[in-house]
Design a protein around this nucleic acid. Structure first.
Length: 424
RNA sequence: GGAGACGUCGCAUAGUCUGGUCUAGUGCGCCACCCUGCUAAGGUGGUAACGGGGCAACCCGUUCGCGGGUUCAAAUCCCGCCGUCUCCGCCA
């Protein structure tokens, strides 16, 4: 939820943000109108209510005829109060719905849509030249099957398309990656968390995932619960309706969870292998911090993502996502995309968003300021490792014989194993 | 799945039967000040959030788990839901 004060004081800023996202700027005017109507009806209701309360006290004291007379007057007043209250509540609900429909105000993201991202830099060395090395690279599924690591056929048999089994070394590899991610997070002072993957509607709504991309989310209708697409949801909800102490700096959590995505509307896209799947695992960084520290915290999260990518020795680029491609709660987003040799393109491995106070406002996460008042905090999130990283790891570190070199950073998590050998 | 108890201002608790004197009392904790050579003890005052109005001091409203209802008036009465605890049953 955006700041109502900002909407009132600087509606042009919100209109500009809507325009940058390619969203409807007239929402701003509808919200301003609803706000004005709410305030006037609320004032009317409140003065009538004050009168009613004062009269109630007289009724309590009065006796006999005087009381009977007061009762007839106050009965009439009660009807008016009820009507005005309904009016005020109606206006409030209308305003709320409009406010919930406006995505976060963009902060520094380049204008444009999905294709208009800005490449900030390339890291992790130049991608390998397989032609020069004298062999054609195999794709991750080919490699994974030879290693006995990935089984998509049985995944489809048991659960349908976009499901898979990680088997043998594949299962160990995922655990190694995620354990390395958890260890790094703990070393950097994050609190490790294993989070619920089913959440209530208000939590899902509060994090902003039920807006334009609601189709992406699995819903258990019978139980009125949602399956999370990332532990960000459970971590954002963790401090909902709380006043937390940030005087010692940001509160940082590292969430480990399964993630579920419907992948609606991506039919025919990335159908091979485990690039785009309905269920995977992820270690996610989540930070609650003071609003003025959020941009700096965003850079820190990005740096931690890059430290993990360095451990896995992948070539990647960092992009600054364009406004039109931001999620509804993000004010700015940086992705790290690893090079995928067989497709000769970049594949998103990490994504870090600065949600400023948008989520905290919806979820009621506040801090106490020095003057004793409260204010919403900022929330940020970023990826430290996912099942998908296996794709980039296998392809980039493959050798001519179908074996795969284990990057040094993961060896301690695989009992010192240096090479994954094909089993067939 | 069944039965019962409970849910009140940071924590603990009073208030609910018998609706209005609740502007929610008290203790603890916390903050400020006073007293005391230091410490301990003591004293005085303050101590929720959200919204509306006002330059401000301040005023008003909402909130006693959540949502409805009854009533001139609800922490208090009625209905539904959620959560916690205890016992029983069932499953592992």
């Amino acid at each position: 939820m955006i700041d109502l004060r900002l909407l009132r004081d600087d509606p042009d800023a919100v209109r500009a943000s809507q325009q940058a996202r390619g969203d409807d700027p007239t929402l701003v005017d509808s919200a301003l109108d609803a706000d004005a109507r709410r305030r006037s009806s609320l004032t009317e209701f409140e003065s009538l209510r004050a009168e009613q309360k004062a009269m109630g006290k007289q009724v309590a004291k009065a006796q006999g005829e005087e009381k009977a007379e007061l009762l007839t007057r106050t009965k009439h007043l009660a009807e008016q109060v009820k009507a005005r209250q309904a009016e005020a509540q109606g206006a409030e609900k209308e305003l709320d719905e409009l406010l919930y429909a406006i995505p976060n105000v963009v902060e520094g993201a380049p204008p444009g849509g999905e294709a208009d991202f800005v490449v900030l830099r390339h890291e992790g060395g130049t991608p390998r030249d397989f032609a020069a090395e004298g062999f054609t690279p195999r794709d991750h599924l080919d490699l994974g099957e030879r290693l006995g690591a990935i089984d998509t056929a049985r995944g489809a048999k048991v659960s349908g398309s976009r499901f898979y089994y990680l088997t043998g070394i594949g299962a160990r590899l995922e655990l190694a990656l995620l354990n390395a991610a958890m260890d790094q997070a703990v070393t950097e002072g994050f609190t490790p968390m294993i989070t619920p993957t089913l959440v209530k509607p208000e939590t899902m709504r509060g994090t902003g995932f039920l807006g334009a991309h609601a189709d992406e989310v699995y819903r258990l209708e019978k139980d009125d619960l949602y399956l999370v697409g990332t532990s960000e949801v459970a971590l954002a909800g963790y401090h909902a309706d709380e006043i937390i102490d940030l005087s010692a700096g940001p509160r940082r959590y590292a969430g480990w969870s399964a993630c579920y995505r419907r992948e609606a509307g991506s039919h025919g896209k990335d159908v091979r292998g485990i690039i785009r799947v309905h269920q995977f695992h992820k270690v996610e960084m989540f930070s609650y911090c003071a609003p003025e520290d959020a941009a700096a915290e965003h850079q820190r999260l990005l740096a931690w993502e890059e430290a993990m990518l360095a451990k896995v020795e992948l070539p990647y680029r960092v992009i600054d996502t364009a406004a039109g491609d931001l999620g509804s709660s993000a004010a700015r987003k940086f992705d790290c995309e690893a090079w995928l040799p067989t497709q000769e393109r970049y594949l998103e491995l990490t994504s870090t968003s600065n949600c400023t106070t948008f989520q905290a406002r919806r979820l009621g996460v506040r801090e106490r300021t020095e003057d004793g008042s409260t204010r919403p905090v900022a929330t940020l999130n970023g990826t430290l490792g996912t099942t998908r990283w296996i794709v980039a790891l296998l392809e980039n570190h493959q050798q001519a014989d179908g074996s795969v070199r284990v990057p040094a950073g993961l060896r301690p998590y695989l009992g010192g194993l240096e090479v994954l050998e094909p089993v067939r």
